[in-house]
Computed example of a mutant assay.
Amino acid sequence: MSKYPLIVRAVEWVDGKVRWINTNLLPYEELYEESQDHERIARAIESMEIRGAPAIGVAAALAIAATALKFSNINSVDELKDIISKAIERLRRTRPTAFNLFWALNRISNVLSRNYSSVEALRKAIVDEALSIYHEDIETNIKIGEIGEKLIDDGDTILTHCNAGALATAAFGTALGVIRAAWYNGKKIKVIATETRPVLQGARLTVWELKKEGIPVTLVTDNMVGYIMYKGLVNKVIVGADRILLDGFVINKIGTYSIAIIAKRHGVPFYVAAPTSTIDPVSSINDIVIEERNANEVRYIMNKMLITMPDVDVLNPAFDVTPPELVTSIITEKGIIEPPFRENIMKILSL
């Protein structure tokens, strides 16, 4: 039982189905979707109904568990393994940058690699592993919050970018988990949230979460960050991550790199909060695929109001790369990682 309220749950397991809040509709409508169909869940990930690296990983794992239960008439271990393998491959193709997706699906794949005496034994093993991933995510986020909140001083104003909150995880959040823990431990803090163009995750999701729990938040446009740091209005920056490399490169929502540069210029600590499942121990910076999303996300506001010429060329990368020299430290469930990152990340992964 958590000592913190888990008011928002982005992804859940309900009676053998995956249940999620459709983040595309927030803050205007709180609509929960349910499905046992991995294809429906894959489309939800692609369309960003489900978004945020940890939430994507949890949803993908639970989608595989739901698939295992859905095909209850299968009597052959090999046949069920084949169905599950195809579902895993479909989910792998949903979004290329968030490492938690591949980490979670690899865990399920490892379950498939073992020998089973019956279909029921295989089905149970898949469901158990998926539920472990789900519960571990919540526990991990709370640990990140408890470890990270020690970096927060009473009276701090913290800038965060995009949404690394409960809506980006199974519950509680990473960057917002640190903020939540500080708030619930009595620290009088304030948050500045960037709007996060083009999909407005900060304006729509982060503000919604913080207002729901009474945590003071001020919304700014993305291009105000330099001004507010110049004015001394920010004490710390805390962001999440979609992938972290051993060398300390942080791949996160587009705009993170710019904020890190401005923070460095003004001597503001720049913290990254993420579970160790976000750390990619194999890839180099040259291996990373930055997802390029639909041009209409930029041409339109929320796919409704056209804000430019309908045929203008658009560049719409979903993520950017922040180099390690701009990162003060990385907050994980196993502890705070300081530079030099390669050496200290490898130590933390071995714990």
Rank of each mutant, 00 (worst) to 15 (best):
E343S: 14
I192K: 00
A125W: 02
E209I: 10
M1E: 13
V327C: 09
E34R: 02
I336T: 13
L306N: 07
S258D: 00
E149N: 11
I279A: 08
R293E: 08
A63P: 05
I251L: 14
A125G: 12
I254H: 03
A66N: 06
K264T: 05
K304Q: 09
A60G: 04
E79R: 11
N141L: 09
L315C: 09
E343F: 12
E129S: 09
R180T: 03
P269C: 03
T328P: 04
V207G: 10
I88D: 03
N163D: 03
N106F: 04
S283G: 03
M305G: 00
C162N: 09
A273I: 08
S277E: 14
E29T: 04
S277M: 06
W103Y: 14
A130C: 01
S132N: 14
N100C: 13
K334F: 15
V272K: 04
P216N: 11
K124Q: 15
N303S: 14
Y32I: 11
F270E: 09
N110K: 15
N100K: 05
T308S: 15
I142A: 02
Y134P: 01
T160K: 06
E29G: 03
V199W: 02
E129K: 15
L246Y: 05
R19F: 02
T221L: 10
L205H: 01
N185I: 02
L31K: 15
Y116H: 04
A318T: 07
P340Q: 13
E120A: 10
I251C: 12
S258W: 00
L31F: 13
V234T: 00
Y28P: 00
K264L: 09
W103K: 07
